[in-house]
Simulated assay, not measured.
Amino acid sequence: MPGTSTDPFAGLAAFLAVAETGSFTAAAARLGVSPAAVSQTVKALENRLGTPLFLRTTRRVGLTEAGAALLIRARPAAAEILQALETAGEMGEEPAGVLRLTVPRMAVPLVIEPVIPVLRRAHPKVAVEISVEDAAMDLPAHGYDAGIRIGEMVERDMVAVRLTRDIVWSVVASPAYLAARGTPQQPEDLTQHDAIRYRFPTSGAIYRWEFERDGRTLTVDPPGSLVVNDGALLISFALAGLGLAYVADIAAEEEIEADRLRPVLQPFLPRSPGLFLYFPRRASIQPKLRAFIDVMRTVLRAA
């Protein structure tokens, strides 16, 4: 029978650290204690629960079925508790604390690079941690205060603040590529071209290019032996003349205006909502997030 403890959360931080890092040594470094202390704490938790949580070998640490089940439920709950503690500590007027953001690479030059320097100068007590990733992200489960994504990727129960105009999708190529291979006139012409293809980071699926014709959606899976999961690489490789790329116009705006990239198939390309900042409604009371939103609106309005 599982034992009892006066502290129901005893060992939980150590368990989560080991589960997330896959290592007792890495977990110890995160928690600022010795690996032996982490091992003893986890062992005590396992004894209390009456079941092993990890499968330990000389090479790796894996979760048992019970450990995996505990991780699924405990990680978002722990994030909620940390958020509650942080919010309680930030109820003063002056913005402070760590602002954790998840943003797609597209948003880095458009939002992050112009906004963060102004935020840091205006609110030096606000530390900022930014994770650049294109995959969809569960904010509370991963400890983020807010995220930036294309509007259609934002969950409906989130507060959303528009950052950019709508996106018009573009198929672009370098002038050198088009001179050598010709300009496609219809989406079907893409079968005679080289595409720089995009693989979704989360699902691993290859993106099928979307077009519109006569009010209907048309998808094309163009051939191409170059595959990336990063939007900036799509533009970089297109600039290098390696093929056609399917990108957001706001991400390639500078290259298009300078004629380093040329858009093609424009009559057939769809429109999407632009970039939005999004966050849980309860997070909006945090001074650090309110400060970020205020600075962001001022900077982007002036841009």
Rank of each mutant, 00 (worst) to 15 (best):
M1N: 03
P2C: 00
S5K: 00
T6H: 08
T6P: 00
P8T: 00
A10F: 04
A14I: 00
L16I: 12
A17W: 06
A17C: 10
A19S: 15
A19H: 07
T25R: 15
A27E: 03
A28F: 08
V33T: 15
A36D: 14
T41A: 15
L45A: 12
E46T: 05
E46V: 03
N47Y: 05
G50S: 10
R56K: 15
T58N: 10
R59S: 14
V61S: 04
E65M: 03
A66P: 05
G67E: 11
G67Y: 11
A68F: 01
L70V: 06
I72F: 08
A74P: 13
A74K: 06
A77C: 04
A77M: 14
L82G: 00
A84M: 09
L85V: 14
A88E: 14
E90S: 15
E90C: 13
E93R: 11
A96F: 11
A96S: 15
G97C: 08
L101Y: 03
V103I: 11
R105C: 02
R105E: 15
A107N: 12
A107L: 09
P109G: 07
V111F: 14
E113V: 09
V118W: 03
L119M: 12
H123E: 14
H123V: 12
K125N: 14
V126A: 11
V126F: 13
A127S: 13
E129D: 15
I130K: 09
A135C: 00
A136Y: 09
D138A: 09
P140A: 08
A141V: 03
D145R: 09
D145M: 07
A146Y: 05
A146T: 13
G147K: 12
R149C: 04
M153G: 04
M158L: 11
V159W: 04
V159R: 11
A160I: 07
V161W: 03
T164G: 13
D166V: 05
S174N: 06
Q185M: 07
Q186R: 15
P187T: 07
D189A: 06
D189S: 06
L190Q: 02
L190S: 04
Q192S: 12
I196A: 10
I196Y: 12
I196E: 14
R197A: 06
R199P: 08
P201T: 05
T202F: 07
A205W: 01
A205G: 01
F211E: 01
E212W: 12
R213M: 10
L218P: 06
P223K: 05
V228C: 12
G231W: 02
L233I: 08
I235D: 01
S236F: 04
A240I: 02
G241C: 05
L242I: 03
G243Q: 11
A248K: 01
A248R: 00
A251E: 13
I256K: 01
I256F: 02
E257Y: 10
R260H: 13
L261H: 12
R262F: 00
P267M: 02
F268Q: 04
S272L: 04
P273K: 08
F279W: 01
F279H: 15
A283F: 08
I285S: 08
Q286P: 03
Q286T: 06
P287F: 00
A291Q: 10
V295D: 14
R297P: 09
T298N: 13
R301P: 02
R301I: 01
A302Q: 14
